[in-house]
């Protein structure tokens, strides 16, 4: 098993190189970072040239990628445009842990991401916990009562929620729980930020501010996952080994939660492992709507300004997470299903 994990990690290295190259090339089409730098003022063309040289944007794309990957401290750059390369580079490259500086605010990428990642993790882990608990409850319950009134209602509601756009749900939720609750004199939910500036960042404040974003993030996933869980459970419950378990006189909970669920868990684990890395990347729409200072908003703000270092940092983090979660899923498989063995 250790050998298998080691081999899988080794295999991931070339994959990550290819991913990073493709993403880097694609990033060049996201717009000119210099165009947005002057704000409302038009940047003079001489300044544009200088900025381009300073940021290394005058180099061919493959050289830019190389600098991003391994740094440029081994070479000298021509900063003043006189044709003589005299200034030694300071970048150390991603391979040595230097993700560069943000083109927007000159802060190190790791610091920019580091400020936002905990906020996103807080929101995402809470949402994921809600998703799993409710999806399992709803999925198993409606599988056990297939075609009952409850099951039919849940089926309708899940399809409605599953097909509803996130922004629409968010706005409806805001309209009901913030706007109208306030109007009716009920305790209403906040719609923006992590806390009231006047109240300070207390756990209660943050939890209160998380209600709507968490609900917005969860509803679609709960709807989707509960369908998967329902069908996986229905399939498992129809198998011969469930009949055997029943023929042994086992109590119903043991049949459902051990004999059936352990078999049904396999396809569910696949789907969840595939979705998890994207939760790390934050929810662009939800964070934007609720003004949540997380990765999704960070991504949106920086991708619109062509901030290659920050965007690459976020995307590579997601890529690495995808590789790791996939590996975790495969290890979970082996644990859940003894027929699967890795060598």
């Amino acid at each position: 098993m250790t050998r298998y994990i080691f081999r899988r990690l080794l295999q991931a290295i070339p994959l990550l190189f290819v991913i990073s190259l493709v993403l880097f090339v694609l990033m060049q089409n996201m717009g000119d970072p210099i165009a947005t730098m002057g704000g409302r003022n038009v940047t003079r063309s001489a300044d544009r040239e200088r900025l381009k040289r300073q940021l290394g944007l005058d180099k061919p794309i493959i050289v830019q990628y190389l600098y991003w990957l391994v740094g440029n401290d081994w070479t000298k750059t021509d900063l003043d445009g006189d044709g003589v390369a005299e200034t030694p580079g300071v970048r150390r490259g991603v391979l040595r842990g230097d993700f560069g500086l943000s083109l927007v605010n000159k802060k190190p990428v790791t610091q920019v991401i580091g400020e936002r990642l905990p906020n996103t993790l807080l929101l995402m882990l809470t949402a994921e916990a809600f998703i799993l608990i409710f999806a399992l409850l709803i999925g198993i319950y409606s599988a056990l009562r297939q075609y009952s009134t409850f099951d039919n209602i849940i089926t309708t509601v899940t399809f409605l929620f599953y097909s509803m756009p996130v922004f629409f749900f968010a706005l409806v939720a805001m309209y009901i729980f913030a706007v109208n609750f306030k109007k009716w004199g009920l305790p209403y939910l906040p719609t923006v930020g992590m806390f009231e500036p006047t109240a300070g960042k207390t756990p209660l404040q943050v939890a209160w501010h998380m209600v709507l974003p968490t609900a917005t993030l969860s509803f679609g996933f709960i709807a989707g996952y509960s369908r998967y869980i329902r069908s996986a459970m229905l399939e498992a419950l129809g198998q011969d080994y469930v009949r055997t378990a029943k023929a042994k006189g086992l109590p119903r909970p043991e049949i459902v939660y051990i004999h059936a669920l352990k078999n049904a868990a396999l396809p569910i684990v696949t789907i969840i492992a595939l979705d998890l890395p994207f939760l790390l990347g934050g929810a662009i729409v939800t964070e934007r709507i609720f003004g949540w200072p997380g990765m999704g908003r960070l991504f949106l703000d920086h991708v619109s300004r062509g901030d290659t270092p920050v965007v690459m940092g976020i995307l590579m983090m997601i890529a690495v997470a995808a590789v790791i979660f996939q590996l975790i899923a495969d290890i979970l498989y082996a644990w859940l299903d003894p027929r699967i063995r890795y060598t």
Binding site: D240, R243, T244, K248, L250, K262, P338
Partner: peptide
């Protein structure tokens, strides 16, 4: 019936591959 099944009356099924739970 749960007290009858498996205790008083037991059953053996046709295909032991599918009748046994693969993950236990």
């Amino acid at each position: 019936m749960e007290h009858i099944r498996g205790k008083e009356i037991a059953m053996v099924f046709q295909d032991p591959m599918t009748a046994l739970n693969p993950v236990l």
